[in-house]
Amino acid sequence: MSEWTEIVDYFRGRSMWMLHYCTGCGAIELPPTMTSRWDMERFGITPMATPRQADILLITGYLAIKTLKRVVYTYEQMQAPKWVLGFGSCTINGGIYWDSYNVIERLDKYIPVDIYIAGCMPRPEAILDAFVKLKEMVQKGEAKGYEKYVKNYEWYKANQDKVLKRTSPVLKEIEKVTKIG
């Protein structure tokens, strides 16, 4: 059975369809990656339109609280096996938005990220490098973020809920301004 899994993994690594979630900056790096100059289709990677069809979720740039909600929903609509690529510094530690009140700091706390691409902005070479690394990981059976998500679902859900479903003010020591109506 393990041979069969290896075969399946080999082909999965050769055919990865990508859904790019580009509400932050960095989307502009993808057209050159797709077209003549760098041509990611030679690795079997093509852009797809909906989460149902996609294997890779590529998240570029910062994620506001609002967009995080959509990312989680989109990620859960994708079907296993699925992988997440975090693109740019903002997905690693918030980047230049490190102290912003509405940009999350680290994507990995909310959904499992298989590979980060560091940089602000990462060049298309870096994206391709990530794709190749991901391919190797998939073929070796190492990219198991989606299983991690299932196993640690409560932990991820708690993190998501802490950000998305707040029921009390975050900063308690500062008194609320009196509203006059």
Binding site: V8, F11, R12, R14, G44, R52, D55, Q79, A80, P81
Partner: peptide, 12 residues
């Protein structure tokens, strides 16, 4: 490869 991958992938 794509067809093989699709048949090995989960769906809704």
């Amino acid at each position: 490869i794509d067809l093989f991958k699709l048949f090995s992938k989960g769906s809704v």
